[in-house]
């Protein structure tokens, strides 16, 4: 085990090269609905129990199934109303189980990125080849069902190995060259994109996905009220919008249909979306669009700046 994951360098949030988003936007805004499949009878993983009760664990399973049966369409209608294309964090087995949901997303030209195969299959304990196989299966499944070359990754249930980002990038290259496997949502260390060190040396970025704005964290961990969540979204946006005048920032709302699309929560969410998209200098984008723009325009300048500061101050 390592003291530090080694994926990125310390890089202070001041005096960085200025990021300018398209059309002078201050904030790149993206919404990442997780569309997940949780199993009723998942196999045991020695490092993490899927459910608190013995299988069949109805409370958890059924609420997530609600997200697919009811919640997904509600959020989809809402995002459409505010001109937002979702970036889907996808349990790729859902392509097999619920192709109707995939079809609705495809019709709207939404992005799909990999969130593993099932959200009840954890990376913990996998050998490197097992994790590589799982990631490859997920990217191939997305391509087969949507024609998209998967650009991003969020590990299933945020379960990682030391090699997760390396493996994702390598499998992307193996399947589709530089067109796949170039951004990660797994790191929460910044409000701007950052270059990621990989053993392959591939050009790869971390795109802020925000655990803090994640509805499941807000509702299941922090247990805040829907109206409070709506206010936190606005507060988060206000600060990133103001700072974005100095250098472009990113705001992400990661959502789960079984949380945010509930009838008592969706109104507060809608108000926040209305507020955010009602500002002029917001680039409403997808994860892949942001990552591509960053890699094409600011990745090199970021690396140079990071290296200059590293050479000047060093690291103990």
């Amino acid at each position: 085990m390592k003291e530090d994951p080694g994926y990125y360098d310390y890089w202070p949030y001041e005096n960085r090269p200025k990021i300018k988003w398209p059309n002078g936007a201050k904030v790149a805004f993206w919404v990442a609905p997780n569309i997940e499949f949780y199993e009723l009878n998942p196999p045991n993983n020695p490092f993490r129990k899927p459910w608190p009760q013995p299988n069949p664990a109805l409370p958890g399973y059924t609420s997530r199934d609600w997200g697919n049966r009811v919640g997904h369409k509600r959020q989809m209608d809402l995002l459409e109303k505010y001109g937002i294309r979702g970036s889907i964090s996808l349990s790729t087995a859902l392509c097999d189980h619920h192709p109707e949901i995939i079809a609705l997303c495809k019709e709207r030209n939404w992005e799909f990125f990999s969130h593993g195969i099932y959200n009840t299959r954890y990376t913990y304990g996998m050998s490197e080849s097992q994790e590589r196989d799982m990631i490859k299966d997920s990217i191939e499944t997305i391509y087969k069902h949507t024609g998209q070359k998967c650009a991003g990754y969020l590990a299933p249930a945020l379960s990682h190995s030391e090699n997760t980002l390396d493996l994702f990038a390598e499998v992307g290259t193996e399947l589709f060259g530089e067109e796949a496997g170039f951004y990660s949502c797994d790191l929460f260390h910044d409000d701007q994109p950052t270059p990621i060190h990989l053993r392959s040396g591939k050009r790869f970025a971390s795109i802020p996905y925000s655990l803090e704005m994640n509805d499941t964290i807000a509702y299941l961990v922090q247990k805040i009220t829907p109206r409070r969540y709506g206010q936190e979204l606005k507060d988060n946006f206000d600060r990133l919008y103001a700072e974005g005048a100095e250098s472009g920032t990113i705001m992400c709302i990661p959502t789960h249909n079984y949380q945010v699309a509930n009838s008592h929560r969706i109104k507060a969410y809608e108000k926040a979306l209305e507020y955010i998209t009602g500002h002029s200098d917001v680039w409403v984008a997808t994860g892949k669009e942001i990552a591509t723009y960053y890699l094409d325009n600011y990745y090199d300048a970021s690396l140079t700046d990071i290296n200059n500061k590293k050479n000047r101050y060093g690291i103990r």
Binding site: P43, I117, Y118, M126, Q130
Partner: peptide, 13 residues
Amino acid sequence: GLDKSYLDYPERS
């Protein structure tokens, strides 16, 4: 690594 059945998906349909 995990038992190879951990990467089997018998209900994936």
